[in-house]
Design a protein around this nucleic acid. Sequence first.
DNA 1: ATGGTAGAGAGTCTA
Length: 255
Amino acid sequence: MKIASWNVNSLNVRLPHLQQWLSQAAPDIVALQETKLEDERFPDDALAAAGWRSVFSGQKTYNGVAILSREAASDVQIGIPGFGDEQKRVIAATVGDLRIVNLYVVNGQDVGTEKYAYKLRWLDAVHDWLADELREHPNLVVLGDFNIAPDDRDVHDPEIWNDDHILTSTAERDALKRLYALGLHDGYRLHHDEGGVFSWWDYRQAGFRRDRGLRIDLTLVSDALRGACAGAGIDREPRTWERPSDHAPAWVELG
DNA sequence: ATGGTAGAGAGTCTA
C-alpha cells in the first residue's frame, strides 16, 4: 500500500503531470494540496477514467485539497471540526482500514505577522482534532504540505533557515513536535537519517538547479502503523518536468 | 533578500 502526498500548485495546470506520475509511480492513495479549483471544476471524470476515486474540497485561486484512492473513500470530513476557516486546507476520509488526514498547513508569510499567528492557532486546532481522531482511528495517516521543515537536516542552509524564518522557526517546529507527541511518526525518518533530501524548491533563484530546497511535505504514521511502514521516499523526477509544481511527491509504503 | 518566479486572473495576492 503506497500512500503519497503532492502539492500540485494548480491541478488545472498540473493534471498531465499528475496523470503521468500516477501511472508510473502506481500509488494506492494520494493526497493533493493547492488544487486551486472550485469543486465544480475538479477533474473527477478524467481521474475516474484512469480508475481513481476522488474526494475534494476546493476554492478559486488559493488552497484546495483532495484525496485520490483506488478504493472508495468514506466518512469524508471537510475542515477542522469546530474551527471556523474559510480556507480549504483540510480533508479527511477513511480508505479501507486507514484513516487519512490531508493537510495543507498555513504558510505563515513571515514570523510575527497575523498570518504567522493564524498558522500557530491553526496547528493548535489540528493538534486537538488529531488527538480525537487517534482515539477513534488508531490506523491514522496524517500527510500533506506541512510548511514546516522538521529539523536542520531538512533544509539546504540552516544559517538562512533559522528561528527567524517561517518554515523553520522554533514555534513551528514545536507545534510539529506536539503532533509527534500524540503518537505520530515522520515516515521518512523511520527509514532515512541523512540530511539534504528535499520536497520543495523555490521557483526563484534557480532553487531546484542549485538544490536549495526544504523537506516540508511529510507523512506521519500512528503508533499502530509504525511497524507496517516499510519504506519512504521523495520522487524528484516530476520537479524536472516542463512547467513543474514547486513540490515533489513524497510517499510511504505501508504493509 | 525592500529581491527573485509561478499561478490565478485582471490589480495584486499568495506562496
